[in-house]
Computed example of a mutant assay.
Amino acid sequence: MDFRCFDALGIEVPEAGAVFTGQNAQGKTSVLEAVCVLVRLHSPRTSRMQTLARIGGHGGFGIAGEAWDMERRIDWRPRVPTRHVVEGDERPSQGGYLEDGGLLVWMGNDDLDLVRGGGESRRRYLDFMGSQVAPDYRRALARYRRALKAKNLLLKDGERRRREIESYEAIMIPAAEVLRRVRADLSGRLTEVVAERQRTIAGKDELAGMSYLPGGGMELGPALEQVREKEFRQRRSLVGPHRDELELTVNGMPAAAYASEGQQRTLALALKLAQGGVLRERAGREPVWLIDDVFGELDVSRRNALMRALPTGAQKWITTTYLDWLKETPELEGLARFAVEGGSLRAS
């Protein structure tokens, strides 16, 4: 395995899921992260695969498991193509590996950044959903990012690289169309669900709102023409999906600036619960919920409301530093219990 702090780990989890307990920095989150990487080729904690390899290991890592009745495996090594294997057959690309993979929702304490943080955190929220529900989204996102990076490098040389810049914009425009079509559709589906979840968890009539604001408008081509000279002067890209925003409000006011901490935490939970609902609606099946150290940080009323809101038929992988609150949570009966300490795991 050689993943994070684990040199090797084998675990069997029942259909309902499992709870992993232990102190901080013992490996609990890494168990959930391994599931996320195996299923979606994505870590919520880093974008650099090399940081997932165990220090002192062989320089790479491998993860294998049965997910949705299919044996799946990935092997990552530096400077060589990653192997993606399903049912013993190697898939030639990430897209091929993901096309029949499952769905995931990740919940963690840093979800508060969805409300308090900059636009990048909210774009990642939409990207994680879009990559799961739209086959062309992940490819369009990769093409857009590569072309944007090249364009920004060329902009440092100013107007004399105009032709080369325009050639990369020709790649960005159709990719942006895919991204914005999916983002707009997802935002429309999420709006009502987020508002309903906010009221449910808060236990009172708090009105949550959200609006998708494409940076420069929905059509990238005309927007680029309008800011062309300004981009040359500032030597950076000023419009496009990398500048999109998901505006969040509570009771009509910007959530980051005016909502209380409790309202902000509730809104972050509402966003993730709504994400799970939209994934289920689009795919016709429940996602797996990876819930990292969330419940212990919530007051009793929000914790109980969250537990009632989680779909009963979904598998849940939950980490926590202590078990006391579980006694008050009959909804988690049937989940396996594991203790994690120092990179080792045992049934508890």
Results as ranks from 00 to 15, higher is better:
Phe3Asp: 02
Phe6Val: 02
Phe6Gln: 05
Asp7Phe: 01
Leu9Ile: 13
Ile11Ala: 09
Pro14Ile: 09
Ala16Trp: 05
Gly17Cys: 05
Gln26His: 07
Gly27Glu: 01
Gly27Pro: 01
Leu32Cys: 06
Val37Met: 11
Leu41Trp: 07
Ser43Tyr: 05
Ser43Ala: 03
Ser47Val: 11
Ala53Cys: 07
Arg54Thr: 03
Arg54Lys: 15
Gly56Val: 02
Arg77Thr: 14
Arg77Ala: 12
Pro78Trp: 09
Val80Gln: 14
Thr82Met: 15
His84Ile: 07
Asp89Tyr: 12
Ser93Met: 07
Gly95Ser: 11
Leu103Val: 06
Val105Pro: 01
Met107Ser: 08
Leu112Ile: 14
Val115His: 07
Gly118Cys: 06
Ser121Arg: 15
Arg123Met: 05
Gln132Ala: 01
Tyr137Ile: 01
Ala142Thr: 15
Arg143Thr: 07
Ala147Glu: 03
Ala150Asn: 12
Asn152Gln: 15
Leu154Ser: 06
Lys156Arg: 15
Arg162Gln: 10
Arg162Phe: 04
Arg163Gln: 13
Glu164Trp: 08
Glu164Val: 11
Ser167Val: 14
Tyr168Arg: 15
Tyr168Pro: 07
Met172Cys: 12
Ala176Pro: 12
Glu177Asn: 11
Leu179Pro: 09
Arg180Gln: 12
Arg181Asn: 09
Arg181Leu: 06
Ser187Met: 03
Arg197Val: 00
Arg199Met: 06
Leu207Glu: 13
Ala208Val: 12
Met218Phe: 14
Glu219Leu: 14
Gly221Asp: 10
Gln226Asp: 06
Gln226Ala: 14
Gln234His: 08
Arg235Ile: 09
Leu238Phe: 04
Val239Trp: 03
Gly240Arg: 13
Pro241Tyr: 11
Leu246Ala: 05
Glu247Asn: 09
Val250Gly: 01
Val250Leu: 15
Ser260Arg: 13
Ser260Pro: 04
Gln264Tyr: 03
Leu269Trp: 12
Leu269Gln: 05
Ala270Met: 06
Leu273Lys: 10
Gly276Ala: 06
Leu279Pro: 10
Ala283Pro: 12
Arg285Ile: 07
Val288Arg: 12
Ser301Arg: 15
Arg302Asp: 00
Arg308Trp: 00
Lys316Glu: 00
Thr321Ile: 12
Thr321Ser: 14
Asp324Ser: 11
Trp325Asn: 01
Trp325Ser: 08
Glu328Ile: 02
Leu332Val: 11
Leu335Tyr: 10
Arg346Trp: 09
